[in-house]
Design a binder for these strands. Structure first.
Lengths: 142, 142
DNA sequence: TAATTATATATTGATTGAATATATAGCAAA
DNA sequence: TTTGCTATATATTCAATCAATATATAATTA
């Protein structure tokens, strides 16, 4: 009964943040991230798939294997991550696809939802993984 | 698999817009709104309850009965409606309630979700029912 | 008192979210 | 070359929630 961000995109963001925090440490195991973030490995395995497909992560199998960020943390925004894992940046279907509703032409609320979606994702676009790493450091030194 | 506004808050907004469009027409039947908005009466009956409790609508039973906006359309924002029907203005539980997650103190993403929620609802707060009525008029005269 | 309208409660069916389980595939070092 | 390590792929489960309907009851006016 209330609009909520899925654990998928929240865990996904924490997954990416964790990797950003260990950027340059070589391939990282999902099991380590799972421990640090207190999330199940199996679930992270699911979440990481689209992140790999989208080119944000590269992986290596076998011993000494693991996952690495494919881009520097400065070049990945939270919008990238959330937009990917939530499958789109619109809070209502009719924002993107004008064919789902026959009222599209008359409906004044459609534009409303579009603006709300944009306000949200515009904000998320201004924040990179590097920003989050900084913020995390600041929080820990307190 | 994607964050979406519920039909509850979308229909609720259309319900309120419809009432704003017939402001000063006396008590309005839900059945008329249902027809105009192409939504089931039964469902609207559910949605209207919290709107009444919150004081946005007053109702009269019996013949000549119906529902009336308790405030002028200028004084009701979309944030009021959506915030009410979605039960809160935060996209993640931990935004409001700091006890739901033990990581609250360390978690840099929490602030993130808070900002995203605010960005969205701040935008919705700038739009009143009167604005939507105007927009609807403009769309129809095209 | 009869017709009309709103209110209250319960129930349904389908969908989705969140997570787990079980296998398979590929790589590196011994 | 084989053993162990790690990632990948697919399927399945369980519970929660969304969206909607059904069936009553209560109040008001003509």
């Amino acid at each position: 009964m209330s609009i909520k961000l899925s654990t998928r995109s929240r865990y996904g963001t924490r997954l990416m943040l964790d990797m950003a925090q260990h950027y340059n440490d070589g391939p990282i195991h999902l099991s380590d991230i799972a421990k640090r973030q207190d999330v199940s490995v199996k679930y992270l395995e699911q979440i990481i798939i689209p992140l790999k497909k989208a080119g944000y992560i590269e992986s290596l199998r076998g011993p000494k294997g693991g996952h690495i960020l494919a881009k520097p943390p400065e070049e990945i925004t939270v919008k990238d991550i959330v937009g990917l894992l939530e499958e789109g940046t619109s809070l209502v279907e009719c924002c993107d696809d004008t064919t789902v509703c026959k009222r599209t032409d008359i409906c004044p609320t459609r534009i409303l939802w579009k603006e709300a979606s944009e306000a949200m994702f515009d904000r998320l676009q201004t924040i990179t993984l590097a920003d989050l790493v900084e913020k995390a450091k600041a929080m820990q030194s307190k």
